[in-house]
Design a protein around this nucleic acid. Sequence first.
DNA 1: TACCGCACTGTTAGTGACTAACAATAAGGG
DNA 2: CCCTTATTGTTAGTCACTAACAGTGCGGTA
Lengths: 200, 200
Amino acid sequence: MRERHSTLREQRRAETQRMIQVHAVRLFVERGYDGATVNDIAEAAGVSPMTVYRHFPTKEDLVLVDQNALLVAEQIAATPAGQPLVRRIGNALVDSARTLAAGDDRFLLARLRLMISTPALRARHLDNHYVLQQAIVDGLGDEAADPDVAFQAAAAASACLAAMHTALVRWAKDDGRTDLPDLIAKALAAAFGDGTPRRG
Amino acid sequence: MRERHSTLREQRRAETQRMIQVHAVRLFVERGYDGATVNDIAEAAGVSPMTVYRHFPTKEDLVLVDQNALLVAEQIAATPAGQPLVRRIGNALVDSARTLAAGDDRFLLARLRLMISTPALRARHLDNHYVLQQAIVDGLGDEAADPDVAFQAAAAASACLAAMHTALVRWAKDDGRTDLPDLIAKALAAAFGDGTPRRG
DNA sequence: TACCGCACTGTTAGTGACTAACAATAAGGG
DNA sequence: CCCTTATTGTTAGTCACTAACAGTGCGGTA
């Protein structure tokens, strides 16, 4: 069989991956992103440097890896096509932030702070938004069959994501005390007009 | 004297810098970004690799270096404070694009295509927008004294820049045939509402 | 239970981006 | 003409990242 594969193997793999990332973020926080080499992280995690690279293709991925990205694209594609794009995308972002903020907290915050303060990480993080934007437009499918519509959707999506990023920065600056979904809603409102996306 | 410095020295420096960048972009287009090493570029430009690094701190800068960035921030700060932020920023972006498109063309297009297709360059390019956003907010000065206003301005600015980036991508895809300022205006309209940016 | 395939890991050697430190050259100002 | 200094070249080194090969243990199979 090819399906229904390993359980113990997958567990081990996921565990070492988690361990590597935890030690990486810890060292980055302690010494700064440039102050900790991949070899340091490997040693701290008790694995070989090569193993680190097999789990995280680049050093940046040690901070950036995160699965909730594509979730947003699906969420948008699932929303009814009636409302304007910025509202649909905005609502999806706020909702996904709600589920996101429900999870961990300190670890996410530490990673986010690293992403904001380290230029290389910040750049990659913003590029992920670009990729996500493409996914959003692709997820619209037939709705964006017309190139002009696709272009408008891309513009709206990237604008929404950028506004959300501003909220993330603010959230990190406030040490996670403020409500993230609310903050995102405020950022969207500031960019697109009062009360446009969402309410309540 | 420290001021009113060199003329010949500055000319030589600017010339070698331009030469390095021209050869770099040419080689990147020919062989791809990863296909041309900094040593290759140095050899092509007839300088030592170290000289390349002194003019362009990173390999990415060989494509990204561009002075029209800060121009936008000044342009926005110069606009009257009456209208809403997205409109002011949008107008400034359209205007700066107008002056930008008046200059060269093929070289700019080649660089832009590299920035879009190469993940590392695309990431850095987007990060430049982040830096520019900060500059825009700082340029508002007293207007953004209130943290909440500054936050809203940041959200609006980043959203505008993201929309502009979408226009740049489209422009590059159209091989520069369409009118860039017009395309940016369309992207802003798609994101922020029909007609000229914003209302209410 | 014994066997075999494959996922995971470690080791080694290498490339390429980037830095630090020192020496040589040439432009600018007095 | 002399002194300062900006610019460049050279060397040696660090670090992120890759390719290739070998060892080990899990997973299914006979």
